[in-house]
Design a protein around this nucleic acid. Structure first.
Length: 198
DNA sequence: CAAGAGATCATCT
DNA sequence: GATGATCTCTTGA
């Protein structure tokens, strides 16, 4: 397409850097019914075996094995029996870490505005991890897919986010994580109208 | 606008 | 058998 696909090397870095650098990048999914594209505006980092907010803190299980694997793969899981969450695995194999993609601005190109459902304006169609997956048509079968492939990937389209426009804040929905819930490991684009919460 | 409840099931204990 | 990296709808000010 028209951007530069992110390489394995992009993901194989410190998770906080990856989370920050993913802002402004474009998530692309080639589905059987066409393209789904959106600009990433909110991310969260889950880092290492001790981060109690992370699924990996309870050790390597069937579900979390992907987080312990090599970088640049998708970790998709079902939450509350209803919604999916989409993460990108980061850092070297053996160290469990990932970035949760929390919100994006749906691309308005190619008539995607037609996806609006009446309740949601276009900019509110993917402003949360579950809604994002619904919009992007990301679900269980994509768990473990290689993001360096041609079905689901992230690309750089050249417009980076200004550092002044990036906010770091506490992560959402991790009240059970003790001191780890205080970490400012959530990043979002302040000028975006598609942030899940302020 | 804010707060509260309910939906629903794969995964892990 | 319990729980959750969420969302939507309802209620009430």
């Amino acid at each position: 397409m028209r951007g530069k696909k992110l390489s394995r090397a992009f993901y194989e870095r410190a998770t906080l850097e990856v989370a920050r650098d993913l802002l402004g990048k474009f998530l692309v999914h080639r589905t059987s019914q066409g393209w789904r594209v959106g600009r990433i505006v909110e991310t969260e980092a889950y880092i290492g075996p001790d981060d109690r907010a992370s699924h990996a803190s309870r050790g390597k299980t069937n579900r979390t094995a992907l987080m312990f694997g090599p970088p640049g793969y998708a970790y998709v899981y079902l939450i509350y029996g209803l919604y999916h969450c989409f993460n990108v695995v980061t850092e070297r194999a053996g160290y469990p870490a990932a970035v949760l993609i929390r919100a994006l601005e749906p691309s308005s190109e190619r008539g995607q505005a037609l996806l609006m459902d009446g309740k949601n304006r276009l900019e509110k169609l993917a402003n949360g991890p579950g809604k994002l997956c619904r919009y992007m048509q990301i679900d269980q079968p994509l768990n473990g897919i290689d993001l360096c492939g041609s079905v689901l990937y992230i690309e750089d389209r050249g417009h980076s986010v200004e550092p002044d426009d990036v906010v770091a804040a506490r992560r959402i929905g991790v009240d059970y994580a003790g001191e780890w819930k205080e970490k400012p490991w959530r990043f979002y684009v302040n000028t975006s109208d598609s942030i899940s919460r302020r």
